[in-house]
Design a protein around this nucleic acid. Sequence first.
DNA 1: CAGGATCCTCGGAGATACTG
DNA 2: CAGTATCTCCGAGGATCCTG
Lengths: 125, 125
Amino acid sequence: MNGKEYHCPVELVIELISGKWKLLILRELMSGTRRFSQLQKAIPGITQKMLTKQLRELEEAGLVHRKVYPEVPPRVEYSLTELGSSLEEIFDSMHRWGLRYMEYRIGRQAPLKTSTDLDHLKDRS
Amino acid sequence: MNGKEYHCPVELVIELISGKWKLLILRELMSGTRRFSQLQKAIPGITQKMLTKQLRELEEAGLVHRKVYPEVPPRVEYSLTELGSSLEEIFDSMHRWGLRYMEYRIGRQAPLKTSTDLDHLKDRS
DNA sequence: CAGGATCCTCGGAGATACTG
DNA sequence: CAGTATCTCCGAGGATCCTG
């Protein structure tokens, strides 16, 4: 994310959001502010290390805001920045395309295993 | 690309286009049909192996069409399928977002190294 | 010309243990 | 609770050589 040279804005966008868990994290945060532990529960399979790392990258990218409450025990809340929220537009367009793609391919041959459990990304207006 | 389970269409789209060279290949093909060697020249730094591999994946994904001419010496032409062409819509939306993102960040602090030499992705039509 | 076949490197990502 | 700190593994990607 640092010191790299991007060929074009499209490549930049892909780098920003294509970490293995980033989409899931962003999706979760699009529903509202979440604590670290809430994210961990909401995203089965992710490790603490990975959640931390991906969140740091999203924060550095300016997509996610991190608020630390100086308490004991510690409390940290994550939320989307304006920039982060503005990604929905892209996600919508990708979501629409992806659905058309799946239909198209299923109509032919490709046995795409899909579980569209995250479809409500667009089912909310 | 095979045997994987996708959480949602958005993730699927990202997997389809996030190979290291896929964007560059797709961009090149959006300008028209290209031979293997033409692609290689148009994309500095890519190796034969990588070009072959990424093309095969794009072909398997149904985004790129591969036409072999039974001649000597061999000639193979690559072009976008309908599905491949339909990606432009997404690219446009990503391109717009990426530009806004860059402006926004440059206005603050982040020293993003960018060379928008591929900006004509949207400067067409 | 358009690849195929091999070997190798390097970093993303998992597992596990520890801490303010 | 919300993280670091290590160790390890695996596979994308690179380099190189070979061929119908």
